[in-house]
Design a protein around this nucleic acid. Structure first.
Lengths: 161, 161
DNA sequence: GCAGCTCGGTTCGTGTGACGAACTCAGACG
DNA sequence: CGTCTGAGTTCGTCACACGAACCGAGCTGC
């Protein structure tokens, strides 16, 4: 059952539920506080509590005490380095949505802070060659120990459109 | 409630359930047939039927008749161009899992068919500048019509580790 | 020509988990 | 003292995912 023979399954098992990625999106956008996330997302409070705890357990998020003037100390949530590593996932989801779901201008963009240019994902080899989707071949790594032996063995077929 | 003010939410609303992305992973790996997917994934047959129909409705997948010699005509599933557009999402999920979940060799890689080199995602501007996660700023697009006015307005803060 | 096989589903009863609403708790303020 | 606010917790309900069983179209062997 959904053995992590490939890291896609592992990542989805960790974060693939209805809300985790949306909570992370809030954090990427700078929304860090419980109530703010809850009203933004329309998530139920109990589920938000649960998701934040799971993200803490995963080490994707950490909680940081803060104090507004004239308020008591409270906790807010921030991405860890591990959490920031999910940025490409966010960008990939956003790019696909912008291209295939939204008509007209995309509602949010991600820009280089220095030049202001929009940021896009590219698929390249280490030598810098830009690769298109139909030029790729999945390959099982012979050096990896297989947790689940014969599941979904890649066929070395190219992805066909 | 989870309004698509940003395409991430839209994409997740379309594909963000437990199984859709794993079904797509099977298709990327060349697994196209109902039973094969079902046993690979350990998904219940009813849910697999439902997910495939949703993916067909979305236009991410199309069904193609095929006939094995000495068998009747059956249907298999293939990615459409729109479906292939999700490849960066897959790669991003895999890269994160390889880096943060798997210890040791990653079980599956994606390689350039021509040179055999591994493929990685990079974040760049159109002018070719490579950008790191902490050099990015989310920005609301003023020209986009807002479906939900004040939800989760990006703060123009950088993502902080 | 009918029994049996395989693939690709559909049906159905059960259980987990997401939901909204209400409640709790700790400190600041008047 | 009472009230307000942010951050949760508790609880009853309901939808959806689950496994197991069933269905049915076409091919083969007898």
């Amino acid at each position: 059952m959904a053995a992590a023979h490939c890291s896609i399954a592992g990542t989805l098992e960790a974060l693939g539920d209805t809300w985790s990625i949306l909570v992370l999106r809030e954090l990427f956008f700078g929304v860090r506080r419980f109530n703010e996330m809850q009203t933004d997302l329309g998530i139920s409070r109990s589920v938000l509590t649960d998701r934040l705890n799971r993200l803490l357990d995963l080490g994707v998020v950490r909680s940081v005490p803060y104090q507004e003037p004239g308020e008591r100390v409270r906790n807010e949530y921030r991405l860890t380095r591990k959490g920031v590593g999910l940025l490409p996932v966010m960008i990939a989801l956003r790019e696909w949505g912008d291209e295939h779901l939204v008509d007209g201008e995309p509602p949010v963009t991600l820009n280089d802070r220095e030049t202001g240019e929009a940021i896009r994902l590219e698929m390249r080899t280490p030598s810098g060659k830009l690769v298109q989707a139909n030029e790729m071949v999945p390959r099982a790594n012979p050096r990896a120990r297989h947790t689940a032996s014969s599941q979904a063995a890649p066929r070395a077929r190219a992805t066909s459109a």
